[in-house]
């Protein structure tokens, strides 16, 4: 760590520690008073599980009971990538090569791992319906695969045209939004999936979400991870 950052002054250090220990004591007191008996929400989740179209209670809560939270959560993710892209100075995606040279060990590893990761992502997506899993987990694995591929130089970042990248990023969120709005045409509230349609709709949303999340994570890595080449010398105002 560059040593030019002076150690935090001693006085400041002591004060901070003192304050935070006191805060901890009070938080501990509060935490210890938490009532250990169940407060009744868990039971209502169980008995509504059948009509949620999904068996895994967490996915049910995530995508059906509190689907609105997830919708906004995806919006946050999309917003984050938009923010990151807005920070890039020129153009959408950095065109520069990421890795200076093809590292043989890395390229071998990529060739082995990437297919495995895609397969696992598919399984996770499917398993989410009954067991822990779902769009986010699958998406993150896809993202990891994407990063690996890009890092190892097999794929140059300019591979996909910026327009397509943007569409993939947005598609997950848009599909979710559309799915949320459809019930409104059947005189139902937002995100109130008709019973018989609940399961297919959730699956539809989950798949598209996976792709979007994967692409979002990859783009986040690529766009802000551009290499420090000479034209990037510090401080030149382009």
């Amino acid at each position: 760590m560059p040593n030019n950052i002076e150690r935090p002054r001693r006085a400041q250090h002591i004060v901070a520690v003192g304050l935070l220990v006191a805060v901890f004591v009070l938080l501990a007191r509060a935490v210890l008073y938490i009532p250990m008996h169940d407060t009744g929400v868990a039971s209502s989740i169980q008995d509504n599980l059948q009509i949620s179209g999904v068996l895994n209670p967490v996915t049910a809560v995530l995508l059906n009971f509190r689907g609105y939270d997830t919708l906004l959560e995806i919006a946050v993710l999309v917003l984050a990538i938009i923010g990151v892209l807005s920070l890039q100075r020129e153009g959408m995606l950095a065109s520069g090569r990421l890795a200076p040279f093809a590292d043989p060990a890395l390229s071998l590893l990529t060739r082995i791992l990437v297919p495995m990761m895609i397969l696992i992502a598919g399984y996770l997506l499917w398993a989410g319906e009954k067991a822990p899993g779902g769009a986010f987990q699958a998406g993150s694995i896809l993202g990891a695969a994407g990063v690996l591929v890009t890092l190892s130089g097999h794929v140059r970042p300019g591979w996909l045209s910026p327009a397509i990248v943007k569409i993939i990023i947005a598609v997950g969120f848009v599909v979710f939004l559309v799915a949320a709005i459809i019930p409104m045409f059947f005189d139902k509230n937002l995100l109130e999936y008709p019973l018989h349609l609940a399961k297919p709709l959730i699956i539809l949303i989950e798949t598209w979400l996976t792709f979007s999340i994967g692409m979002i994570l990859v783009t986040m890595f690529i766009s802000s991870a551009a290499p420090i080449t000479d034209d990037y010398v510090r401080g030149d105002a382009t």
């Binding site: 400041q12 004060v15 901070a16 304050l19 935070l20 006191a22 805060v23 009070l26 938080l27 509060a30």
Partner: peptide, 12 residues
Amino acid sequence: TLIAGLLLLVLV
């Protein structure tokens, strides 16, 4: 530090 201080104050 002020934030932490205020947090402590309110908890107190």
